[in-house]
Design a protein around this nucleic acid. Structure first.
Lengths: 134, 134
DNA sequence: GGACAACGTCACCTCAAGGTAACCACCATG
DNA sequence: CATGGTGGTTACCTTGAGGTGACGTTGTCC
């Protein structure tokens, strides 16, 4: 799903312009990348309430696999959204926290979540209607 | 920005109540899942500038396959984001336009796009650093 | 000694999203 | 006649995101 957005530059210009944004490069590509994977947004929003350790995150998001937790955290770290700090305690503990960049994305995510929260009922209804018509 | 953050955190709290739940039980996650496919957002933003016909959309988004255009439009229609109107002209033409629901999602998308535009440079830099360190 | 909790890595497999290309009907134009 | 533009459908295939489960290392506790 990631690589294919790479070529959408042309229209991104178009609709970026519509939203009143400078054209240049395609910023949306990266964002859609993040949005469209299954766990990044969930992880960011979970870390929004404060730094957490690895198994603490596992407990708070029971349906994420260990592999995907590791992998998504690495990706977020790579993107500068999350910082990883290892404490040299007896069993070494690792703390993940949002960076300033990571915190800044909470705002647009928040809008999206609010939108979803306000409209999922309408969407469900629309789906039901549509499916019944078919 | 300050107000926006606080506003966002309200919904983050709501959200966190649902985080532990499987996707099926979290309506927000369900909705966001739909939004996060490869073409939905692009299509919505393309239709943001006005109603368009099928092949008009194909031309504006050259790298979408016919199949995926049809499919994504159907999904959006099913979710009540897009309405489809067939005109009984000589070669019947079909017009797609955003519904009120579809238009309402432009706002949160817009915030996301703005965020991406403001921060993609930082992200790129962070990635480069991270990759070099490894 | 055995279990468990800390934080992972690795190999393997599945499943569906998405791409490709062929096909349909209809009509206009050259 | 043939090409091209309407708006699709269908069958087939590839890709990779994500899940599963085993293994590992260092310690502590019972």
């Amino acid at each position: 799903m990631r690589a294919a957005l790479e070529e959408a530059t042309v229209f991104v210009e178009k609709w970026s312009a519509n939203v009143g944004l400078p054209v240049g490069n395609c910023p949306v590509r990266g964002v859609l990348d993040k949005i469209s994977d299954k766990w990044s947004m969930l992880l960011v929003m979970t870390l929004a309430s404060g730094p957490k350790r690895f198994n603490q995150l596992r407990r708070e998001i029971p349906d994420i696999s260990q592999k995907m937790l590791t992998q998504t955290l690495r990706d977020l770290q790579r993107d500068g959204m999350v910082s990883r700090q290892v404490f040299d305690t007896k069993p070494p503990s690792v703390e993940y926290r949002l960076t300033a960049l990571g915190e800044s994305v909470i705002v647009p995510f928040g809008y999206l979540i609010r939108w979803a929260d306000e409209n999922f009922a309408d969407i469900d209804r629309s789906r039901a209607e549509f499916d019944q018509a078919a």
